[in-house]
């Protein structure tokens, strides 16, 4: 984690920004195209599913071994709640970073814990949602909507998982007193990644859930 920072002692960077911070922004820029590919696929396949269940409309679908009418599958209240939790986790992690930079360990640990809890909650929401859909007859391969939806939100979910593990690792370091103000950059880059995961959801939520 301290490759470039140690470099910087001898070799101040050209931009004045730590190389790790430039790197995480580079990665974020690159990941825009990853999610663009997933979102475009979701959108060009919208309405092309051969069978149900469908997200917003009633449809014919195979359930319990026979074709039957199915309700729209999305539950907007549940996912709105998950969205709010993820948004607040972004708020919490900036507070944690603020604490870390000011050397306020208590603030750091409190808000970083809150962030991790929010992240776990979001993952829980997604697991619940997926298993609910599955019981409603929407398996991964049921139709194009299912495959594109699960792949898109699954990719996002795996990013959330990586973020939670990353932040939890930093939380353990913080609790052990190994994240002093001078090392707050460690948290800053993790937080940038976390915010990116959040803004991706800011796009997914309306585009996937709220547009019919």
């Amino acid at each position: 984690m301290s490759d470039a920072a140690a470099h910087a002692i001898e070799h101040p960077t050209t931009t004045g920004i730590d190389s790790r911070k430039v790197a995480i922004w580079t990665l974020i820029g690159s990941e825009c195209l990853l999610f663009a590919s997933l979102i475009s696929t979701y959108l060009v396949y919208k309405g092309k599913s051969l069978v149900g269940p469908l997200p917003h409309t009633e449809s014919q679908c195979m359930l319990h071994g026979k074709m039957q009418a199915c309700e729209p599958i999305f539950s907007i209240p549940l996912v709105t709640f998950g969205t709010a939790v993820l948004l607040f986790s972004s708020f919490f992690v900036v507070l944690a970073l603020y604490g870390a930079q000011k050397g306020n360990r208590k603030m750091l640990i409190t808000w970083l814990s809150a962030t991790v809890v929010c992240g776990l909650f979001f993952i829980g929401m997604q697991v619940y949602e997926f298993s609910h859909f599955y019981h409603e007859g929407l398996g991964y391969t049921t139709n194009l909507f299912a495959s594109t939806f699960y792949t898109l939100t699954g990719f996002h979910g795996s990013h959330v998982t990586v973020g939670v593990i990353w932040l939890a690792t930093l939380l353990v370091m913080a609790i052990r007193g190994k994240l002093p103000a001078g090392k707050s950059l460690n948290l800053e880059i993790a937080a940038l990644y976390w915010h990116f995961v959040d803004v991706v959801w800011i796009v997914i939520f309306p585009v996937v859930y709220l547009m019919r």
Binding site: T41, V44, T141, L144, S147
Partner: peptide
């Protein structure tokens, strides 16, 4: 490997994608 139809017409997928 996991039986999706992203590029397979029989499941509504589009090879052109």
């Amino acid at each position: 490997h996991f039986a999706t139809h992203f590029f397979l017409p029989e499941g509504g997928g589009d090879p052109i994608l």
